[in-house]
Simulated assay, not measured.
Amino acid sequence: MAAAPTKQSLQKLYSSMLKTSESFSSYNFRSYFVRRTNSTFREIQDETDPARLAAFYAEKSNELAVLKRSAVVNQLYGGTRLVVEEQKPVRERGDI
């Protein structure tokens, strides 16, 4: 039986997945993976069963490796930015 991961290791895995999710250059992929990471870790937040936590940690560690490879490919073939991502310049009072 595998030992349950510590709270710190789960937090480190969460922050790594979140950082990798935010590294996607495509807005749609980036926002999807950030939402998915948040909801996945929110579901397991109150879990106390060591076996389930160990299985969750192992699965998400493998998923992190896939996510990192996908992020690199997405950065290579990112494309142009969407209108949603464009930052509008702040208007000055005299710029009417």
Results as ranks from 00 to 15, higher is better:
M1F: 04
A2W: 02
A3I: 09
A3F: 10
A4K: 12
A4W: 06
T6W: 08
K7E: 07
Q8K: 11
S9A: 13
L10G: 09
M17D: 00
L18K: 04
S23Q: 05
N28C: 09
F29C: 02
F29Q: 14
R30I: 01
S31V: 13
Y32W: 07
Y32S: 12
F33R: 05
F33H: 13
F33P: 04
R35M: 08
R36Y: 11
S39R: 13
S39F: 10
S39G: 12
T40G: 08
Q45E: 12
D49H: 01
L53P: 11
L53D: 09
A54L: 05
A54G: 04
A55D: 13
A55V: 03
F56P: 03
F56K: 08
A58K: 14
E59S: 11
S61L: 04
S61V: 00
N62W: 02
L64C: 06
L67C: 10
K68D: 01
S70E: 10
S70A: 12
A71L: 02
N74Y: 06
Q75R: 15
L76F: 00
G78R: 11
T80V: 15
L82D: 06
V83N: 09
E85D: 11
Q87M: 03
P89E: 12
E92A: 15
E92H: 14
G94R: 11
